[in-house]
Design a protein around this nucleic acid. Structure first.
Lengths: 328, 328
DNA sequence: TTGTACGCGTTATCAC
DNA sequence: GTGATAACGCGTACAA
């Protein structure tokens, strides 16, 4: 006999009344509430959440999908978990290692009612395929998805990139190398197009020979610089995929006795704490705010189911900012 | 009518047989299996995991408890999520922000059958209090818990600390400052005792005036060094709570024109990728392996429930290693 | 305000 | 190999 039935038996009240007390319904007499609460304490009762989820159809769990938990997505993850918790939701991590089948398991978990909604941080499956899962629960993406089938809270990184370019050119750096992340990602495309457009507009050389892809980590940055200096000409500045890459460039430049910023300027991306510490010029990226927005988007749907009405939370307009430091 | 009942109706078989097919039981005729599988495909059926969990009493979810998701715990988290997934378990993050009540919610979720087990990365509640939850499911800790009531996969950091001290002294650094993490943590106590014991054994000065606490981040490290140089005497070496603190020290030393390692030697802890990039001497800490061990400990219990027999996975002996680089 | 009866979707224990 | 039937623990119309 479950503790629930035990409470029913000991209190003399019915299943419904006990349930009402548990769920803080107002339609319960003070005496009934008091008596039932007392017995609940005595029995050290806690509701079985699987039973609750089965009955209500909600789990109060949200899945977060990413290739791996790394430094780049850390602040997004941290903020999302926190804000979700504030609203009574737990967060399940789905690390896919870039594998499509692994990734699909997260979406299958939406179908199988394991999670109420999903946040995509990074994903490798086609939006077309993923769209089919939208009927099972709200899905929102941080990564830009190309199609509008899955809503995204991403900002157009072209704006941030232009800030960096304006800064560099205003300082006299015109021969610029670009270290990108994923080749096929929309962010990479945005950045590349912003670069090419900006350079053309200012009648400056577009150095596609200084494009490098799949540069994510400090080690990647080091290798990229070692490889760049083998060329006949050294760029005046390097635009990095993120701050960690910039750290690698900075470190390798020191080893190679390349003076910064005289011989080589460096601009990072995201404005992490380390960029501050190491004096790296970078683009402030409101990542935590985007995580908040991501949850708000989900809450717009999940809150309605929970509170019985439309839940609209304020989505403030977010902006990049240039943070000038010692590497430019 | 649920899809399950739909399958029963369309196939003509009973609830039990359908369930057997879903769970790959061998006691099903090939014809029955084929027919039921076909219908399952047609209906695009997936089991409701809440119903499964309610019925079996297992969720295949493990909670991971920590103050916040930060760089320090990142590799542990990442590895744990991965290994758990390999064994069919999902990971729920509980960030407590150091709040005892928040933290207790994770343990209550063990009682309420939301998770099958818990991993404690950091925790603030008393082991005494937490011990009461052990009856509801396996709990294992990364952080050392003092009492043996909750098993821990932590290594005694004193060993790693001694490696650092031997290295420093062998290089002639004898006036050593210590930057610790949490004041009351067992790791801090281990390190402090290791330092004091080592210095006494070698008839060297124990500089308790150079103890600093709650130093976690690069910024903390910078501040610590700024504060240390206001003293009458500068230490010859700094032992840091982790690599990020070491980065802060290194950066601030550069700003202050303090030559490294001539005027000041630096030793980090953990051997993160950035320590490699920035040439920081550090202690290699097998964090990922400890995460693996943590899961294996849980699996020893959860696997038994799942596979019907004791599951013993190999726990290899782990060791710290000194990684000498340019800061010593 | 309270109680009845049923539903949620699946597993498990018996029989046969 | 197959099939009734009873759990699993709780929410909730609906009626009283």
């Amino acid at each position: 006999m479950s503790k629930f039935d035990e409470i029913i038996r000991l209190s003399g009240y019915s299943r419904a009344t006990v349930s009402r007390v548990i769920n803080h319904s107002r339609h319960v007499s003070p005496e009934a509430r008091a008596k039932i609460l007392t017995i609940m304490k005595q029995l050290n009762y806690v509701p079985n959440r699987n039973a609750v989820s089965l009955s209500t159809g909600q789990t109060n769990q949200i899945g977060i999908v990413m290739a791996s938990t790394n430094e780049i997505v850390l602040s997004f993850l941290n903020q999302f978990v926190d804000i979700a918790m504030d609203y009574g939701f737990q967060t399940i991590i789905y690390t896919t290692r870039g594998d499509k089948e692994n990734e699909l398991r997260a979406f299958e978990d939406l179908r199988s009612k394991r999670v109420d909604g999903l946040v995509i941080v990074t994903c490798v499956n086609e939006p077309r395929l993923l769209k089919a899962y939208c009927e099972y629960g709200p899905i929102v993406s941080w990564q830009r998805m190309g199609s509008d089938e899955i809503p995204s809270v991403a900002m157009d990184q072209a704006e941030g990139y232009r800030l960096a370019l304006e800064h560099l050119v205003s300082k006299g750096y015109t021969r610029i190398a670009n270290l990108f992340g994923r080749v096929e990602s929309l962010n990479t495309r945005s950045r590349r197009e912003a670069y090419e457009q900006f350079m053309r507009d200012h009648h400056l050389p577009v150095r596609t020979d200084w494009y490098r892809y799949s540069v994510f980590t400090p080690t990647d940055g080091e290798e990229a610089l070692r490889e760049l200096i083998t060329g006949s000409e050294l760029p005046q500045a390097v635009l990095c995929a993120n701050d960690y890459v910039a750290i690698g460039i900075q470190s390798e430049a020191n080893k190679q006795a390349i003076s910064i910023p005289d011989q080589l300027a460096i601009v990072g991306f995201d404005d992490t704490e380390l960029a501050h510490t190491l004096g790296i010029t970078t683009i402030y990226n409101p990542i935590a705010e985007q995580a908040t927005h991501a949850f708000y988007r989900l809450w717009a749907v999940l809150g309605k189911q929970q509170m019985g009405q439309e839940q609209q939370l304020p989505l403030e307009k977010l902006q990049y900012k240039l943070i000038a430091r010692q590497t430019t």
